[in-house]
Design a protein around this nucleic acid. Structure first.
Length: 428
RNA sequence: GGAGGUUUGGCUGAGCGGUCGAAAGCGGCGGUCUUGAAAACCGUUGAUGUGAGAGCAUCCUGGGGUUCGAAUCCCUAAGCCUCCGCCA
């Protein structure tokens, strides 16, 4: 949620910044509602002040044995007017909040305007592997041949978009998760295992609701009291301090949470995205940071470096991409993606997305800290980054590290989690 | 699933339908004392909105109701606790 004040102060400027996102917004209605609310608030508050004053006088008058019936009658009428206005105010407030909750975050001003086409690669690590003397297989073939993944039986159990990690595949997946978690713990992140079913407020606070209410799996029917399966651990981690005020010296907070991510991904299927690139459930370790308002830029760079280092330690060829304003997700001011090279698809595929939400999420769920110098409360800044999404990594590993004989070399950092195993080989 | 209890400020915990934004203690902050610290003592200490400010309004888990007036009474939802039942 962005602050209503900044719209009130300079609607044209804010409009322009949304334009970079490719969003045309019109604040006329919002500003009109805001104006009405402010005017009405003033009136009701005056009425309430009168009522409060009279109410405190009643017991005094009674004690003096005076007749209070005329005051009581007058206050009854006043009370009715107050109730009516309060109702109107509640309605106005609800409308205003709904509009505000639906507005995306403001993209940082240094971002290129426009969508995907204006994303800018800013760093590359490693090289595209060359496959000499053999035709490389794609990850679906490799995963099947090496017995890492059972697509057919996955579909049998849970339908399209589901798969089963089997044998070495399950071990490799688990090794990746363990490796990431160990790296985060080493860097001072607190490791978290979170509930997977969350309440509505979590979705709202993270900025995913109300817009993406239909993109998640609801446990019961969609309602404010039902729960949904989290689409990313961010949804949980970013709500930890809802309604709380932290001390500045507690900051920054660094968390790493592992959860499966559950997504409907409705209608997004394409043949080329077969196998693990996009599924209804995938594994991810998520990093989330809470910082003071002047520390989030620094934290952002730190998280980007961390995501990069994980992929580099695996030895995978990737590029780092600075997203254009229109490609950043709605809740975020800026986003960098780490994209892995998938040889068979001849493209780079995202495996980590690092973003700075600044105070957008904190405002939605009122997460604050007390500034140690001024003593005032300020909204926290929240940042998140995948560290990393494993379903995108196994395809990259098997494709990039495949050998002429059909085996795959296991990245060195993962071997200790797999009993020292160095190669993925065909079984029987 | 059934029955009962409970929810007050950073924490513990008082709170009679009216002067309660809320006692007291702890904690925090500032000060006195001290070479310094601790102890002791003194003072101070919730949030949000609005206003230049004095102030005014709102907030005692959320929502609704009764009343001239609600932290206090009623209904309801949620959280927590206890007991009973059921069960991979």
């Amino acid at each position: 949620m962005i602050a209503l004040e900044i719209i009130r102060e300079n609607p044209e400027k804010i409009k322009q910044r949304y334009k970079n996102r490719g969003k045309d917004v019109d604040f006329a209605e919002l500003l009109e509602l805001d104006k009405q609310r402010r005017e009405k608030t003033k009136v009701v508050e005056e009425m309430k002040a009168r009522r409060n004053k009279a109410s405190s006088e009643v017991p005094v008058l009674k004690k003096q044995g005076k007749d209070v019936s005329s005051v009581v009658k007058e206050m009854k009428e006043l009370g009715e007017s107050i109730a009516k206005l309060d109702g109107e105010l509640a309605e106005l407030t609800e409308k205003i909040n709904y509009i505000l909750l639906c507005l995306p975050n403001l993209p940082d001003e240094d971002l290129l305007a426009g969508g995907k086409e204006n994303n800018t690669p800013i760093y590359t690590f490693g090289k595209k592997p060359e496959f000499k003397g053999f035709t490389p297989k794609n990850h679906v073939e490799l995963c099947k041949d090496l017995g890492l993944i059972d697509y057919e039986r996955g579909a049998k159990l849970a339908g399209n978009g589901a798969w089963i990690y089997t044998g070495d595949g399950a071990r490799l997946e688990w090794a990746l998760l363990s490796f990431f978690i160990d790296e985060h713990v080493k860097d001072g992140f607190e490791f978290m295992l979170l509930p997977h079913m969350l309440n509505y407020e979590c979705g709202l606070g993270a900025g995913q609701f109300p817009k993406f209410e239909d993109d998640v799996y609801w446990i019961d029917s969609k309602s404010k009291t039902s729960k949904f399966l989290l689409p990313t651990a961010e949804t949980a981690l970013v709500n930890l301090y809802r309604g709380e005020i932290l001390k500045e010296n507690e900051l920054p907070k660094k968390f790493a949470g592992y959860t499966p991510c559950y997504r409907r991904e409705a209608g997004s299927y394409r043949a080329e995205e077969r196998g693990m690139i996009r599924g209804h459930q995938f594994n991810k370790v998520e990093m989330v940071m809470y910082t003071a308002k002047d520390k989030s830029d620094e934290a952002f760079e730190y998280l980007v470096k961390k995501a990069q280092s994980l992929v580099e330690k695996l030895g995978l060829h990737y590029q780092l991409v600075k997203l254009a304003a229109g490609d950043c997700s709605d809740s975020m001011c800026r986003t960098y993606d780490v994209e892995l090279w998938i040889p068979s698809m001849n493209i780079y595929k995202e495996c980590s997305s690092v973003s700075n939400a600044r105070d957008y999420q904190a405002r939605r769920s009122s997460m604050k800290y007390r500034d140690s110098k001024t003593g005032k409360t300020e909204f926290l800044h929240t940042l998140n980054g995948s560290g990393l999404a494993t379903s995108r990594i196994i395809p990259a590993i098997v494709e990039q590290f495949q050998n002429a004989d059909g085996t795959v070399t296991i990245p060195e950092v993962l071997r200790k989690y797999m009993g020292g195993q160095t190669l993925l080989t065909k079984k029987n």
